[in-house]
């Protein structure tokens, strides 16, 4: 992950696009300064919220009238599913910015997003399986919902592998962005698979028209857990992006240093 590419990467600061709007955040120097103070707060906030959410979900929330204690798997499974899909939507936006506006930070963000996205999707599948075995009576079924989430997992893994498969980072980023955008058609399929096709998986409880089909005693800890997991996900992706930006500066700085010493000799 941290091995420097043999080719010289696209210089960051010198090509930072001019102009206002979105491109104000395209300047890696400004990005590093802005996020330097933000990151420790993000880690801390994630720990506090997730700690509270975990205690609420495991100790202070009621069991379900028919699932019993197994309902507590839901407090991991549902945030992982939302993060897997929300993260992929973020990857699609980054890929669009990378392809159309050649935004250098978007390339890095996409590259660092996919391992974390693959992990949350794997956790979504694993926790769903652990819930399905005692509740449905099976670990897995090839219904439209589960199959489409498995496809999402392969998209994440495929993207992570593809952007790292090229010697030239820019070509890897381009190929990954195209894959990510093609894969984005899977998102609506996942979301509405339970409504379009009859599936073993139940339909949405929280994000449905009308009142959530979940008692507030379970809904509130679910929301706290979701916020906590999202903050942690954001913190670890942001740390990876910052590290990647700094590694690039490091390579360019070392290159410049070597060139200067060569000139002096």
């Amino acid at each position: 992950m941290s091995t420097p590419a043999p080719s010289s990467p696209r210089p960051l600061a010198s090509t930072a696009p001019r102009g206002g709007g979105l491109h104000r955040f395209a300047n890696p120097g400004r990005f590093l300064r802005l996020t330097d103070r933000l990151l420790p707060w993000l880690w801390g906030l994630a720990a506090v919220v997730l700690g509270a959410g975990t205690a609420w979900a495991l100790l202070f929330s009621p069991p379900d009238w028919q699932q019993g204690e197994t309902v507590r798997i839901m407090y991991v499974h549902v945030p992982m599913a939302w993060l897997a899909m929300g993260g992929y939507a973020g990857l699609a936006v980054a890929s669009l910015m990378s392809l159309v506006w050649r935004h250098p930070l978007a390339d890095i963000a996409a590259r660092e997003l996919s391992p974390a996205g693959a992990m949350v999707t794997a956790l979504c599948l694993a926790t769903g399986s652990l819930w399905g075995r005692p509740m449905w009576g099976t670990w897995w079924a090839w219904d439209a919902r589960m199959t489409s989430v498995l496809v999402l997992f392969f998209l994440w893994v495929g993207h992570a592998a593809l952007v790292r498969a090229f010697d030239e980072e820019e070509r890897g980023a381009r190929a990954g962005a195209i894959l990510a955008l093609i894969g984005a058609v899977n998102l609506p399929v996942i979301k509405w698979s339970v409504d379009w096709f009859n599936t073993l998986h139940q339909t949405a409880s929280v994000t449905r028209i009308g009142a959530p089909g979940m008692h507030t005693g379970m809904l509130y800890p679910l929301l706290v857990c979701t916020i906590g997991f999202t903050l942690l996900f954001a913190a670890l992706v942001l740390a990876q992006v910052r590290a990647a930006v700094m590694e690039r500066r490091l390579r360019q700085g070392q290159l410049a240093q070597a060139r200067r010493q060569e000139g002096a000799a």
Partner: peptide, 18 residues
């Protein structure tokens, strides 16, 4: 040869159901 239960999308504590 195999029976799978579906879950309706409701989550409620036992006291509420009772």
């Amino acid at each position: 040869s195999e029976v799978l239960a579906r879950h309706d999308e409701t989550y409620m504590p036992p006291e509420v159901a009772a």
